[in-house]
Computed example of a mutant assay.
Amino acid sequence: MKSVIENDEVCTTQRAAEILGVSVSSVQQLVESGAIDAWKTRGGHRRIPMAAVLAYKGQPGRERATILVVEDNPMQRILYQKHLGAWNLTAQLVFCENGYQALLEVARRQPDIVVTDIVMEGIDGYELLNTIVNDPQLRPMHIAVVSALGESDLVARGGLPPGVVFFGKPVNYDELRGYLRAGCANFLRAAR
Rank of each mutant, 00 (worst) to 15 (best):
A38W: 02
A38V: 00
W39M: 04
G43V: 02
G43W: 00
G43C: 09
H45E: 13
H45K: 09
R46L: 15
R47N: 10
R47A: 07
R47K: 12
R47M: 15
M50A: 15
M50P: 10
A51M: 05
A51H: 01
A51D: 13
A51W: 00
V53W: 04
V53N: 12
V53T: 10
K57T: 05
K57W: 09
G58M: 00
Q59D: 02
Q59K: 14
P60G: 12
P60D: 01
A65E: 09
A65K: 01
T66D: 14
I67L: 13
L68H: 13
V69T: 02
P74W: 13
M75W: 02
Q76T: 11
I78N: 15
I78C: 15
L79H: 07
Y80T: 05
Y80W: 09
Y80F: 14
H83N: 12
H83S: 14
L84V: 01
L89H: 03
T90L: 14
Q92M: 06
Q92E: 09
L93W: 06
V94G: 03
V94C: 10
F95V: 06
E97P: 03
E97G: 03
N98M: 12
Q101Y: 11
Q101F: 07
A102L: 00
A102C: 07
L104C: 01
L104F: 12
L104R: 13
E105S: 10
V106W: 02
V106I: 10
A107Y: 09
R109Y: 09
R109Q: 10
P111R: 00
D112M: 01
I113H: 14
I113F: 03
V114N: 05
V114G: 00
V114S: 08
T116P: 01
M120C: 15
E121Y: 01
G122A: 12
